[in-house]
Design a protein around this nucleic acid. Structure first.
Length: 340
DNA sequence: CTAGTATA
DNA sequence: TATACTAGG
Protein backbone atom coordinates (compact mmCIF):
# COMPACT_ATOMS: atom_id res chain seq x y z
CA UNK A 1 0.00 0.00 0.00
CA UNK A 2 2.76 2.38 0.89
CA UNK A 3 2.03 5.93 1.82
CA UNK A 4 0.27 8.72 0.09
CA UNK A 5 2.93 11.25 -0.85
CA UNK A 6 1.48 11.83 -4.30
CA UNK A 7 0.31 15.35 -3.56
CA UNK A 8 3.68 16.37 -2.16
CA UNK A 9 6.27 15.06 -4.61
CA UNK A 10 7.64 16.81 -7.67
CA UNK A 11 7.21 14.47 -10.62
CA UNK A 12 8.39 14.80 -14.19
CA UNK A 13 6.97 12.89 -17.12
CA UNK A 14 9.56 10.88 -18.99
CA UNK A 15 9.92 7.89 -21.31
CA UNK A 16 11.42 4.43 -21.04
CA UNK A 17 13.97 5.39 -23.70
CA UNK A 18 15.41 7.97 -21.33
CA UNK A 19 16.73 5.10 -19.19
CA UNK A 20 18.76 3.45 -21.93
CA UNK A 21 22.17 2.24 -20.60
CA UNK A 22 21.07 2.92 -17.02
CA UNK A 23 20.92 0.36 -14.22
CA UNK A 24 17.49 0.48 -12.58
CA UNK A 25 16.81 -1.23 -9.25
CA UNK A 26 13.35 -2.70 -9.55
CA UNK A 27 11.18 -3.45 -6.56
CA UNK A 28 10.60 -7.08 -7.58
CA UNK A 29 7.69 -7.76 -5.28
CA UNK A 30 5.91 -4.64 -6.46
CA UNK A 31 6.35 -5.54 -10.15
CA UNK A 32 5.45 -9.22 -9.86
CA UNK A 33 2.47 -8.49 -7.68
CA UNK A 34 1.09 -6.20 -10.36
CA UNK A 35 1.50 -8.91 -13.00
CA UNK A 36 -0.32 -11.37 -10.78
CA UNK A 37 -3.10 -8.88 -10.14
CA UNK A 38 -3.67 -7.77 -13.69
CA UNK A 39 -2.72 -10.57 -16.08
CA UNK A 40 -5.99 -12.42 -15.93
CA UNK A 41 -8.82 -13.60 -18.08
CA UNK A 42 -12.23 -11.90 -18.18
CA UNK A 43 -13.43 -14.13 -15.34
CA UNK A 44 -10.65 -12.83 -13.13
CA UNK A 45 -8.67 -16.06 -13.12
CA UNK A 46 -4.93 -15.94 -13.70
CA UNK A 47 -3.21 -17.64 -16.62
CA UNK A 48 -2.05 -21.17 -15.83
CA UNK A 49 -0.07 -24.02 -17.37
CA UNK A 50 -1.36 -27.54 -18.01
CA UNK A 51 -0.79 -28.44 -14.37
CA UNK A 52 -2.83 -25.51 -13.16
CA UNK A 53 0.20 -23.56 -11.95
CA UNK A 54 -0.08 -19.78 -12.35
CA UNK A 55 1.98 -18.25 -15.16
CA UNK A 56 0.86 -14.59 -15.11
CA UNK A 57 4.08 -13.43 -13.45
CA UNK A 58 6.18 -15.16 -16.11
CA UNK A 59 4.17 -13.57 -18.90
CA UNK A 60 4.62 -10.13 -17.37
CA UNK A 61 8.33 -10.59 -16.72
CA UNK A 62 8.86 -11.88 -20.26
CA UNK A 63 7.38 -8.94 -22.14
CA UNK A 64 8.58 -6.27 -19.77
CA UNK A 65 12.18 -7.49 -19.68
CA UNK A 66 12.27 -7.94 -23.45
CA UNK A 67 11.30 -4.27 -23.67
CA UNK A 68 13.87 -3.21 -21.10
CA UNK A 69 16.73 -5.12 -22.71
CA UNK A 70 15.71 -4.04 -26.21
CA UNK A 71 16.03 -0.43 -25.10
CA UNK A 72 19.38 -1.08 -23.43
CA UNK A 73 17.93 -0.64 -19.94
CA UNK A 74 19.73 -2.71 -17.30
CA UNK A 75 17.22 -3.93 -14.74
CA UNK A 76 18.31 -5.43 -11.43
CA UNK A 77 15.47 -6.92 -9.41
CA UNK A 78 15.48 -6.51 -5.64
CA UNK A 79 13.48 -9.10 -3.68
CA UNK A 80 12.08 -8.59 -0.20
CA UNK A 81 13.55 -10.40 2.77
CA UNK A 82 11.99 -10.56 6.20
CA UNK A 83 9.56 -7.70 6.85
CA UNK A 84 10.20 -5.48 9.87
CA UNK A 85 8.17 -6.72 12.85
CA UNK A 86 6.29 -3.41 12.91
CA UNK A 87 4.73 -4.40 9.59
CA UNK A 88 2.73 -7.24 11.18
CA UNK A 89 -0.45 -5.19 11.58
CA UNK A 90 -0.36 -4.07 7.96
CA UNK A 91 0.30 -7.62 6.76
CA UNK A 92 -2.69 -8.83 8.79
CA UNK A 93 -4.82 -6.04 7.38
CA UNK A 94 -3.90 -7.09 3.84
CA UNK A 95 -4.73 -10.72 4.62
CA UNK A 96 -8.15 -9.67 5.83
CA UNK A 97 -8.73 -7.56 2.72
CA UNK A 98 -7.97 -10.62 0.61
CA UNK A 99 -10.36 -12.76 2.62
CA UNK A 100 -13.13 -10.21 2.18
CA UNK A 101 -12.37 -9.95 -1.52
CA UNK A 102 -12.61 -13.74 -1.89
CA UNK A 103 -16.14 -13.67 -0.48
CA UNK A 104 -17.10 -10.78 -2.75
CA UNK A 105 -15.55 -12.59 -5.72
CA UNK A 106 -17.62 -15.71 -5.12
CA UNK A 107 -20.76 -13.64 -4.72
CA UNK A 108 -20.08 -11.80 -7.99
CA UNK A 109 -19.47 -15.10 -9.80
CA UNK A 110 -22.70 -16.53 -8.41
CA UNK A 111 -24.54 -13.45 -9.65
CA UNK A 112 -22.82 -13.64 -13.02
CA UNK A 113 -21.34 -10.15 -12.60
CA UNK A 114 -18.05 -10.67 -14.40
CA UNK A 115 -16.78 -7.13 -14.07
CA UNK A 116 -17.06 -7.22 -10.29
CA UNK A 117 -15.70 -10.75 -10.27
CA UNK A 118 -12.57 -9.60 -12.04
CA UNK A 119 -12.17 -6.60 -9.76
CA UNK A 120 -12.47 -8.64 -6.57
CA UNK A 121 -10.31 -11.45 -7.94
CA UNK A 122 -7.53 -8.89 -8.42
CA UNK A 123 -7.85 -7.95 -4.77
CA UNK A 124 -7.28 -11.56 -3.72
CA UNK A 125 -3.83 -11.60 -5.35
CA UNK A 126 -1.14 -13.20 -3.25
CA UNK A 127 2.43 -14.13 -4.01
CA UNK A 128 3.55 -17.66 -3.23
CA UNK A 129 7.13 -18.71 -2.46
CA UNK A 130 7.17 -20.82 -5.61
CA UNK A 131 6.47 -17.76 -7.74
CA UNK A 132 9.43 -15.94 -6.25
CA UNK A 133 11.68 -18.93 -7.00
CA UNK A 134 10.34 -19.21 -10.55
CA UNK A 135 10.78 -15.51 -11.16
CA UNK A 136 14.42 -15.62 -10.02
CA UNK A 137 15.12 -18.61 -12.22
CA UNK A 138 13.42 -16.89 -15.13
CA UNK A 139 15.43 -13.69 -14.67
CA UNK A 140 18.59 -15.78 -14.71
CA UNK A 141 17.71 -17.08 -18.19
CA UNK A 142 17.61 -13.44 -19.26
CA UNK A 143 21.02 -12.79 -17.74
CA UNK A 144 19.30 -10.27 -15.47
CA UNK A 145 20.70 -10.03 -11.94
CA UNK A 146 18.64 -10.04 -8.77
CA UNK A 147 19.42 -9.20 -5.18
CA UNK A 148 17.96 -10.67 -2.02
CA UNK A 149 17.35 -7.81 0.37
CA UNK A 150 17.65 -8.62 4.09
CA UNK A 151 14.41 -6.73 4.76
CA UNK A 152 12.32 -4.38 2.64
CA UNK A 153 13.32 -4.53 -1.04
CA UNK A 154 12.67 -0.81 -1.47
CA UNK A 155 15.32 0.01 1.12
CA UNK A 156 18.03 -1.94 -0.67
CA UNK A 157 16.92 -0.50 -4.01
CA UNK A 158 17.20 2.99 -2.53
CA UNK A 159 20.64 2.13 -1.15
CA UNK A 160 21.84 1.13 -4.63
CA UNK A 161 20.93 4.58 -5.97
CA UNK A 162 23.19 6.11 -3.33
CA UNK A 163 26.19 3.85 -3.90
CA UNK A 164 25.90 4.79 -7.56
CA UNK A 165 25.23 1.18 -8.53
CA UNK A 166 21.78 2.10 -9.80
CA UNK A 167 20.48 5.27 -11.42
CA UNK A 168 17.02 5.01 -9.94
CA UNK A 169 14.69 2.79 -8.00
CA UNK A 170 11.56 1.64 -9.79
CA UNK A 171 8.39 1.07 -7.80
CA UNK A 172 4.83 2.34 -7.59
CA UNK A 173 5.22 3.00 -3.87
CA UNK A 174 6.51 6.27 -2.52
CA UNK A 175 8.34 4.58 0.37
CA UNK A 176 11.55 4.68 -1.70
CA UNK A 177 11.69 8.43 -1.16
CA UNK A 178 11.54 8.10 2.61
CA UNK A 179 14.16 5.34 2.32
CA UNK A 180 16.43 7.95 0.74
CA UNK A 181 16.45 6.89 -2.90
CA UNK A 182 18.06 9.53 -5.09
CA UNK A 183 15.44 8.95 -7.75
CA UNK A 184 12.23 7.02 -7.94
CA UNK A 185 10.63 6.00 -11.24
CA UNK A 186 6.93 5.19 -11.26
CA UNK A 187 5.03 3.57 -14.14
CA UNK A 188 8.26 2.07 -15.39
CA UNK A 189 6.60 0.39 -18.39
CA UNK A 190 6.26 0.99 -22.10
CA UNK A 191 2.53 0.87 -22.46
CA UNK A 192 1.31 2.06 -19.09
CA UNK A 193 -2.27 1.23 -20.03
CA UNK A 194 -4.46 1.47 -16.97
CA UNK A 195 -8.10 0.74 -16.51
CA UNK A 196 -10.05 3.48 -14.79
CA UNK A 197 -11.85 1.90 -11.83
CA UNK A 198 -15.54 1.24 -12.45
CA UNK A 199 -15.35 2.55 -15.99
CA UNK A 200 -14.71 0.76 -19.21
CA UNK A 201 -12.04 3.18 -20.33
CA UNK A 202 -8.28 3.14 -20.34
CA UNK A 203 -5.68 5.86 -20.13
CA UNK A 204 -2.03 5.87 -21.00
CA UNK A 205 0.16 6.42 -17.98
CA UNK A 206 3.67 7.55 -18.79
CA UNK A 207 6.76 6.81 -16.71
CA UNK A 208 7.47 9.59 -14.25
CA UNK A 209 10.63 10.39 -12.37
CA UNK A 210 10.82 11.87 -8.91
CA UNK A 211 14.14 13.38 -7.90
CA UNK A 212 14.11 13.25 -4.13
CA UNK A 213 16.25 16.37 -3.70
CA UNK A 214 13.96 18.38 -5.99
CA UNK A 215 10.96 17.34 -3.95
CA UNK A 216 12.66 18.21 -0.67
CA UNK A 217 13.72 21.59 -2.02
CA UNK A 218 10.27 22.32 -3.36
CA UNK A 219 8.45 21.55 -0.13
CA UNK A 220 11.22 22.97 2.03
CA UNK A 221 11.75 19.94 4.26
CA UNK A 222 14.68 17.65 5.06
CA UNK A 223 14.26 13.92 4.57
CA UNK A 224 14.02 13.51 8.35
CA UNK A 225 11.08 15.91 8.42
CA UNK A 226 9.45 14.29 5.40
CA UNK A 227 9.62 10.97 7.25
CA UNK A 228 7.70 12.54 10.12
CA UNK A 229 5.17 13.84 7.60
CA UNK A 230 4.88 10.28 6.29
CA UNK A 231 4.28 8.92 9.77
CA UNK A 232 1.51 11.48 10.33
CA UNK A 233 -0.17 10.48 7.05
CA UNK A 234 0.35 6.77 7.73
CA UNK A 235 2.96 4.22 6.62
CA UNK A 236 3.01 0.43 6.45
CA UNK A 237 4.25 0.55 10.04
CA UNK A 238 1.38 2.69 11.36
CA UNK A 239 -1.21 2.05 8.66
CA UNK A 240 -3.94 4.23 10.14
CA UNK A 241 -1.85 7.35 10.40
CA UNK A 242 -3.27 10.00 12.69
CA UNK A 243 -6.90 10.94 12.97
CA UNK A 244 -8.02 13.71 10.68
CA UNK A 245 -4.50 14.33 9.36
CA UNK A 246 -3.87 14.14 5.63
CA UNK A 247 -0.89 15.29 3.55
CA UNK A 248 -1.81 18.96 3.84
CA UNK A 249 -2.22 19.11 7.61
CA UNK A 250 0.80 16.89 8.14
CA UNK A 251 2.99 19.27 6.15
CA UNK A 252 1.68 22.28 8.01
CA UNK A 253 2.34 20.65 11.39
CA UNK A 254 5.90 19.60 10.62
CA UNK A 255 6.70 22.99 9.12
CA UNK A 256 5.44 24.65 12.26
CA UNK A 257 6.79 22.25 14.90
CA UNK A 258 9.63 20.43 13.06
CA UNK A 259 9.09 17.01 14.61
CA UNK A 260 6.43 14.68 15.97
CA UNK A 261 7.47 15.12 19.61
CA UNK A 262 6.80 18.84 19.41
CA UNK A 263 3.31 18.82 17.91
CA UNK A 264 1.08 19.45 20.94
CA UNK A 265 -2.23 18.18 19.55
CA UNK A 266 -0.96 14.68 18.64
CA UNK A 267 0.93 13.71 21.79
CA UNK A 268 -1.72 11.32 23.08
CA UNK A 269 -1.94 9.39 19.80
CA UNK A 270 1.82 9.48 19.44
CA UNK A 271 2.18 7.32 22.55
CA UNK A 272 0.39 4.50 20.72
CA UNK A 273 3.04 3.95 18.07
CA UNK A 274 6.76 3.22 18.12
CA UNK A 275 7.61 6.27 16.06
CA UNK A 276 11.31 6.16 16.91
CA UNK A 277 11.60 2.74 15.37
CA UNK A 278 9.50 3.68 12.33
CA UNK A 279 11.88 6.57 11.71
CA UNK A 280 14.81 4.15 11.89
CA UNK A 281 13.22 1.80 9.34
CA UNK A 282 13.31 4.65 6.83
CA UNK A 283 16.44 6.43 8.00
CA UNK A 284 18.72 3.48 8.72
CA UNK A 285 17.15 0.51 6.98
CA UNK A 286 18.68 -2.94 6.90
CA UNK A 287 20.10 -3.19 3.38
CA UNK A 288 22.23 -5.53 1.28
CA UNK A 289 25.67 -4.38 0.26
CA UNK A 290 26.38 -5.58 -3.24
CA UNK A 291 29.89 -6.01 -4.64
CA UNK A 292 29.22 -5.91 -8.31
CA UNK A 293 26.05 -6.19 -10.36
CA UNK A 294 26.73 -8.55 -13.24
CA UNK A 295 24.63 -8.75 -16.39
CA UNK A 296 24.94 -11.91 -18.47
CA UNK A 297 24.05 -12.98 -22.01
CA UNK A 298 20.46 -13.91 -22.80
CA UNK A 299 19.92 -17.68 -22.88
CA UNK A 300 17.32 -17.80 -25.66
CA UNK A 301 17.06 -21.59 -25.65
CA UNK A 302 16.69 -21.65 -21.88
CA UNK A 303 13.82 -19.17 -22.01
CA UNK A 304 12.12 -21.05 -24.86
CA UNK A 305 12.36 -24.49 -23.36
CA UNK A 306 11.24 -23.32 -19.94
CA UNK A 307 8.22 -21.38 -21.19
CA UNK A 308 7.20 -23.65 -24.07
CA UNK A 309 8.00 -27.12 -22.73
CA UNK A 310 7.47 -26.64 -19.03
CA UNK A 311 4.86 -23.89 -18.82
CA UNK A 312 2.84 -24.32 -22.02
CA UNK A 313 3.48 -20.93 -23.61
CA UNK A 314 2.87 -20.77 -27.35
CA UNK A 315 6.07 -21.49 -29.23
CA UNK A 316 5.18 -19.01 -32.00
CA UNK A 317 4.68 -16.17 -29.57
CA UNK A 318 7.89 -16.86 -27.68
CA UNK A 319 9.84 -17.20 -30.91
CA UNK A 320 8.65 -13.87 -32.31
CA UNK A 321 9.10 -12.11 -28.97
CA UNK A 322 12.66 -13.39 -28.64
CA UNK A 323 13.44 -12.55 -32.27
CA UNK A 324 12.41 -8.99 -31.55
CA UNK A 325 14.87 -8.96 -28.65
CA UNK A 326 17.66 -10.55 -30.70
CA UNK A 327 17.27 -7.97 -33.45
CA UNK A 328 17.29 -5.08 -30.99
CA UNK A 329 20.43 -6.37 -29.29
CA UNK A 330 22.20 -6.96 -32.62
CA UNK A 331 21.42 -3.42 -33.66
CA UNK A 332 22.80 -2.17 -30.37
CA UNK A 333 26.08 -4.02 -30.73
CA UNK A 334 26.41 -2.70 -34.29
CA UNK A 335 26.00 0.84 -33.02
CA UNK A 336 28.64 0.12 -30.41
CA UNK A 337 31.05 -1.34 -33.00
CA UNK A 338 30.98 1.94 -34.89
CA UNK A 339 32.99 3.48 -32.07
CA UNK A 340 35.90 1.10 -32.62
C1' DC B 1 0.30 -6.27 -18.35
C1' DT B 2 1.42 -6.45 -23.37
C1' DA B 3 1.15 -7.70 -28.31
C1' DG B 4 -1.42 -8.32 -31.95
C1' DT B 5 -5.54 -7.76 -34.38
C1' DA B 6 -9.94 -5.64 -35.51
C1' DT B 7 -12.20 -1.39 -36.33
C1' DA B 8 -13.08 3.51 -37.79
C1' DT C 1 -2.91 6.12 -38.79
C1' DA C 2 -5.01 6.15 -34.37
C1' DT C 3 -7.72 3.95 -31.12
C1' DA C 4 -10.44 -0.17 -29.12
C1' DC C 5 -10.54 -4.68 -27.85
C1' DT C 6 -9.15 -9.21 -26.57
C1' DA C 7 -6.27 -13.32 -26.10
C1' DG C 8 -2.63 -14.98 -23.70
C1' DG C 9 -1.82 -19.93 -20.36
Amino acid sequence: MGLNLKDLVVREKTTLEAFSTKVIAIDAYNAIYQFLASIRGPDGLQLTDSEGRITSHLSGLLYRNVNFLSLGIKPVYVFDGKPPSLKTAEIERRKQTKKDATVKYEKAIAEGNMEDARKFAQQTTSMKDGMVKESKKFLTYFGIPYIDAPSEGEATAAHLTNTGQAYASASQDYDSILCGAKRLVRNFTSSGRRKIPNRNTYIDVLPEIIETQKTLDAIGLTREKLIDVGILIGTDFNPNGFERIGPKTAMKMIKQYSRLEDIPQIQEQLQEIDFQQIRQIFLNPDVADVDEIVFNEVDYDGITSYLVNERNFSEDRIQSTLNRLKKALEKKSQNLDQWF
